[in-house]
Design a protein around this nucleic acid. Structure first.
Lengths: 198, 198
DNA sequence: CTGGGGATAGTCGATTTCGACTGTTAGAGT
DNA sequence: ACTCTAACAGTCGAAATCGACTATCCCCAG
């Protein structure tokens, strides 16, 4: 088993998909893209093939068929093995049980909010809130739609969580904007490091 | 300028640090580790040197000195250039203005919560909540402490955001646990896919 | 005054990840 | 009938990332 391999977050996503039914890598990719937009973040074609190969090497999935249609490249279908299912459960449990400090791009940027200057910060945060609000409304509509079609709620729980966190973020942004306005949050020595907002 | 380089999230963190004062790579590393625990996630020694080199190649930072103490390897100190400062502002603004769908490990795991089975899910979520609550209390204490020592609040805004989001997550977990208990959230066909909890 | 542990610094080869390239097939439009 | 485009499917070399290795200095205990 490779030393470092298989620490990729996609491993969990792929094992999870294969729990439902055997698939070939390309299928995995489109399925992942189609599901929730979140999973889709940070997936490139090559990676899927790389990870599937590593998974097979670890014995967590195995080849079940090689189909060929006409003269196209053959599709190798993989299915989860028993040890693969164990690994999935193990990872699932670990990821849920142990909170990690995850470092999102926004968090990283907020750390240096000061550098944008008062005006720049207000501007950027206001627009973020607007966009995030729109997107979240959309997400909620879509979620309501599929649930309305009778899809089991448990299968959309991840979308619910994302929406919940988006609302929390919006509330925070609004609070910060308000505090900047009212002077509850001040800039040290009058905008010294501002980015001359645009 | 390398094609793919410089899309690393660390780029922003490093440029941000160098805004404060010139540093050598090792210094950057310890500073990053010391600041907020979040930034520290996913930083290895080698990466810092790699990124600093790439940053220098892009002209965003430049070498200001090579110090040597005794017979130790020399420390090359880097400072932000004018174009580096522009780039920092550009990225900061972009990251804040445009909400991205970020795919955290927890979100990825929650998507397959069903596979843990009712009992397994309750167990894992309960423990997550406990640990996250502890950690957050700690974080709050530490934040209050540094603020009490007179540190400008703007410099800790990122910690405030992280704490805010942690509270939101805790509220969500508690709500989900409650819904599982009361039957508001049900498992399709009686725990079919459970992981025989442990 | 000697040896061990920890902080200081950095390098480099091996591993991982990506994205550009190749080629096929089905269907839409003309 | 014919071209154009989009979906399908995978490969492979280049780039990015990591972690193990090296080496010095300083302090403290034995």
């Amino acid at each position: 088993m490779p030393k470092r391999a298989l620490e990729n977050p996609l491993v969990l996503a792929i094992l999870g998909l294969l729990l439902e039914r055997p698939m070939h890598p390309y299928d995995v990719l489109t399925e992942l893209r189609g599901r929730s937009a979140h999973q889709a973040a940070a997936i490139t074609r090559g990676s899927v093939y790389d990870i599937v190969a590593a998974l097979a090497g670890a014995g967590w999935i195995h080849e079940t068929a090689r189909l060929r249609q006409g003269n196209r490249p053959e599709r190798t279908v993989y299915a989860l093995t028993a040890s693969g299912r164990e690994e999935l459960i193990r990872r699932l449990d670990d990821q849920i049980r142990n909170p990690r400090r995850d470092f999102t791009p926004f968090l990283g940027a907020v750390a240096y909010l000061g550098a944008l200057g008062r005006a720049g910060a207000v501007d950027a945060l206001t627009e973020r809130a607007r966009r995030l609000r729109e997107r979240t409304t959309d997400d909620e509509r879509r979620l309501a739609e599929v649930l309305g079609q009778g899809l089991e709620r448990l299968f959309m729980i991840e979308a619910e969580f994302a929406i919940h966190q988006a609302h929390a973020e919006l509330a925070w942004i609004d609070a910060v904007l308000e505090e900047i306005r009212t002077g509850g949050l001040t800039w040290p020595h009058a905008d010294e490091t501002n980015g001359d907002d645009r």
